[in-house]
Nucleic acid binder design. Structure first.
Lengths: 210, 210
DNA sequence: CGCCGATTAAAACAAACGTTTGATTCTGCT
DNA sequence: AGCAGAATCAAACGTTTGTTTTAATCGGCG
């Protein structure tokens, strides 16, 4: 990954974040990066691949970090399954904190959120390339924690977790639509919210089928 | 709203749902509607206005319904503030059930979800036209329920509620990205989840500041 | 029928899009 | 210095975009 490629990726983050995949043009991106129009196609082959590589560039280290954290947590817990809150924490915190921290984080997350909301076709590729391992790994762990419940419940919980995450990702710091008093999320509250939601679903299921 | 206009709106719902605002073209929409390319500009003035009118067409009745339900609930409760679950229920159920019910609902919701994720500029108009009243009304009610807490907590709760909602809206019945075992949400579980999340935030705040 | 405003149809519009080309410059190595 | 391969550049490619224009058609009313 050379200098121009990184400049292009960083420009792409901002443009995709602000305009979405279709809304941002290669000319916007390259001129922001101070590069030639042809540079995207030269270095990445296509606009789609640029998007994918942009995701991979930030998400791959993040995901290995998360899987690492999950592994050590599991190792430390021994035979006991992890608590819901722990799983959610590992899944959410590194992501949100990288979002609040560095300048790029915010743009990247929104770019990803919008891209995932927008596209259908080529997102399969992104899923298989960068997300599949993470999702199955975390779902397996969640399954172990909720082993007494049917799998559908686990899936439901995971669906809401993902929806909340992707919904939150799309919030921009100076929100336009939601204008009056939207609050940029911090990791702690978000974990509390998601965990609370999941535990409520579990509780609800248990009392209904006891 | 004449026949052609309705046909255009229904076609727009599907196209916008499947391709997003920028991804769907006027030619896609008109040819699906069996109308001429010029019809959108003749009847609605522009692609953007078509989108706005499409939202208004479905959302306005839904919102008056929701505000009506909230009013009667408040009237019945008398001086007592509504419970969180009640507020969430009224906000979520009519929406999700119109989504699961009629054929159009699903497309419309996804179209809205994607549109809101995509756009920045002209969504302000949509917000002021169709969403503002609803949001402030419900937030006022939530504020009354959580009156012992600082307003920032209410805002936080409402932010997560909105994020979850918008995240869930974007789920498509046959999901591609999330492929293996995503579950289309039902109103009940969704209400349980959101309420559980909000109550967890509230609980968390109270124990920290007791 | 004959007229008129409303609607539809086909064609053309300029602008913007992603991508390709071919020449030019830059870079590292012998 | 001189060469080869990589990178950059301006220019142009063919499409597609939203929108406009102009002519044809429709529907109701006197």
């Amino acid at each position: 990954m050379n200098k121009t490629q990184v400049k292009l990726i960083e420009a792409a983050e901002r443009e995709f974040a602000e305009k979405g995949f279709h809304g941002a043009s290669i000319r916007d991106i390259t001129s922001r990066a101070g590069a030639n129009v042809a540079s995207v196609n030269y270095h990445f082959g296509s606009k789609e691949t640029l998007f994918i590589e942009m995701i991979r560039y930030r998400l791959e280290p993040l995901n290995t970090l998360r899987i690492g954290m999950l592994d050590t947590a599991v190792a430390k817990a021994g035979p006991r399954p992890l608590r819901i809150k722990r799983i959610v924490d590992i899944l959410v915190r590194p992501m949100v904190e990288s979002l609040v921290g560095g300048t790029h984080g915010e743009y990247f997350m929104r770019a990803m959120g919008r891209g995932m909301a927008e596209e259908t076709a080529f997102m399969q590729r992104l899923y298989k390339d960068v997300l599949a391992t993470l999702v199955t790994r975390f779902r397996k762990e969640m399954r172990r924690t909720l082993s007494d419940l049917p799998e559908t419940v686990t899936i439901t919980c995971f669906t809401y977790l993902r929806s909340t995450l992707s919904g939150v990702l799309q919030i921009r710091k100076n929100n336009v639509v939601l204008e009056s008093g939207i609050q940029f999320p911090d990791a702690d509250t978000m974990i509390v919210y998601i965990t609370g939601g999941i535990e409520a679903i579990v509780r609800n299921y248990r009392t209904k089928n006891k």
